[in-house]
Design a protein around this nucleic acid. Structure first.
Length: 432
RNA sequence: GGAGAGAUGGCAGAGUUCGGUUGAAUGCACCUGACUUGAAAUCAGGCGUGGGCGCAAGCUCACCGGGGGUUCGAAUCCCUCUCUCUCCGCCA
């Protein structure tokens, strides 16, 4: 959520910036009209309240002195209804304003290239060399099929439906090894605190990170057993619970930066992506991800984005997977992000780089929604933190990359050095 | 699942019986100043959050777990939800 002041004192500039960067058309006329009404109604409501408070105080004092309060009460006659009407009108306007403002995307950082879609993203760097095969490489589905049917989509469909998978045997173990390796790397070398979080969260939490109110259809919502139970939703990423750890709290300056890592399943409805990536593990309703979250002082967040992205890159480097780093253009960035790098891993059978991590500096967009703040030493006013998040990495897609890039002519898959300790010392998984 | 108790500012903890000048005593923590070579101790003062109006000084509104209600007036009364604790039962 943007600072409400931007919509008052810098409305035209804000609207211009949103249009130029995001192609987002802010309804300036509606905002101006609502704002005029809001101002008038709020001043009137509050002065009515002030008057009521003063008169009630008088009544209290008169009563304490044993005076007759009947005439005072009579004077109050229609104040109640006036106040009630004003309050209702004000609430209505404020709800409308809030609905508009909560739906406005973040303003991209000045360093973000202007563009319409992913074609305008800017490649920043490449690491590693895509391998040349002296045989025709199979895609990950086929590779896994030959490892004792380690990736079973048919059975998963029976259990749950499309876009689910059952992993078994060495493939399942490799999946687990990847997650373990990532967690260990980030906790022992990059200074993140390992965290276990709820997979079901409430609406306030989802509002905090920006999933609600606008993107509710991307989530799975869980109906309670009883009608009046609070509604919960499955997390689409651990970014949600991790960032919300500090919702409605004020940290001491010395506690920053806060760095959290969690390995969780992620649940996404994939509404609106029918027909895309239907084969294999690329796009599932449920997938595992190791997520990195940082909460930092505002002046540190741009540098922190570079650091955090570097932490995600390190995973790919240790796994020896070729990838490239892409700076997303304004049109391809997520709703709440001020600046995003995507890491794209080489997928041989698709002959292209595919997203495996997305690292974003959300600026104060989320922390304003959730009022996650910190106080500088000696300062009176608390300030909003900045929040960042990034995949480090998406485990399912990492498994895809590994199976495809490391496959051998005989159908076996070689295991990168760093994973071998997690695989009981195995250097390769044999086809069977 | 049953029975009971509770939720107040950074923390602890009054106030809730019998609604009134209580944004809330007190202690701790913290900040500023005095004393001190410095520190401690002591003394004096300050010290919640969010919002509105205003160039500013300042004025003002809301908030005592969330939501709703009664009332001229609610931390205090009523309803409801959530959470925490104690005991019993069940259980990975």
């Amino acid at each position: 959520m943007l600072d409400a002041k931007l919509f008052r004192s810098e409305l035209m500039e804000t609207a211009g910036r949103l249009k130029e960067t995001r192609g987002y058309i802010l309804d300036v006329a509606a905002l101006e009209a609502l704002e005029t009404q809001r101002k008038e109604l709020q001043v009137r409501t509050e002065s009515l309240q002030a008057e009521r408070n003063a008169r009630s105080k008088e009544i209290g004092q008169a009563k304490a002195q044993g005076q007759d309060i009947a005439p005072l009460l009579a004077e109050m006659d229609d104040m109640g209804s006036q106040l009630e009407a004003a309050k209702q009108a004000l609430n209505h306007i404020q709800d409308e304003l809030h609905a508009i403002i909560a739906g406005v995307p973040n303003i991209p950082d000045a360093s973000v290239p202007i563009g319409a879609d992913e074609d305008d993203n800017v490649e920043v760097s490449r690491w590693g060399e895509p391998r040349t095969f002296d045989f025709t490489p199979k895609d990950h589905v086929d590779v896994a099929a030959h490892i004792n049917n380690g990736m079973d989509f048919e059975r998963a469909a029976k259990l749950s439906g499309a876009r689910f998978v059952v992993l078994q045997g060495q493939v399942a173990r490799l999946h687990r090894a990847l997650a373990q390796f990532m967690l260990d790397l980030h906790t022992s070398e990059h200074g993140y605190q390992e965290t276990y979080v709820p997979y079901l969260v409430n609406h306030d939490t989802l509002f905090g990170t920006g999933q609600l109110p606008k993107f509710g259809e991307d989530l799975f919502h869980v109906q309670g057993a009883t009608e009046n139970q609070v509604p919960l939703s499955l997390i689409p990423t651990a970014e949600v619970p991790l960032t919300n750890l500090w919702r409605d709290e004020i940290a001491d300056e010395t506690m920053l930066p806060l760095q959290y890592v969690a390995h969780t399943p992620c649940f996404r409805s994939e509404a609106g992506s029918h027909g895309r990536d239907t084969r294999g593990l690329i796009r599932q309703h449920q997938f595992d991800k190791v997520e990195l979250v940082m909460l930092v002082k505002p002046e540190d967040s741009m540098a922190a984005l570079e650091t955090l992205t570097g932490h995600a890159e390190k995973v790919l480097q240790r796994l020896e997977l070729p990838y490239r780093k892409v700076l997303l253009c304004t049109g391809d960035m997520g709703f709440g992000s001020a600046k995003t790098y995507d890491l794209e891993v080489w997928v041989p059978t698709q002959n292209k780089y595919r997203e495996i991590s997305s690292c974003s500096n959300m600026w104060d967009f989320q922390t304003r929604r959730m009022q996650a703040r910190f106080r500088r030493k000696g300062a009176k006013k608390p300030e909003l933190m900045h929040s960042l998040n990034g995949s480090g990495l998406a485990v399912g897609r990492t498994l895809v990359a590994l199976l495809e890039n490391n496959q051998q002519a005989d159908g076996s898959v070689s295991i990168p050095k760093v994973l071998q300790p997690y695989m009981g010392g195995l250097t390769s998984i044999a086809a069977k």
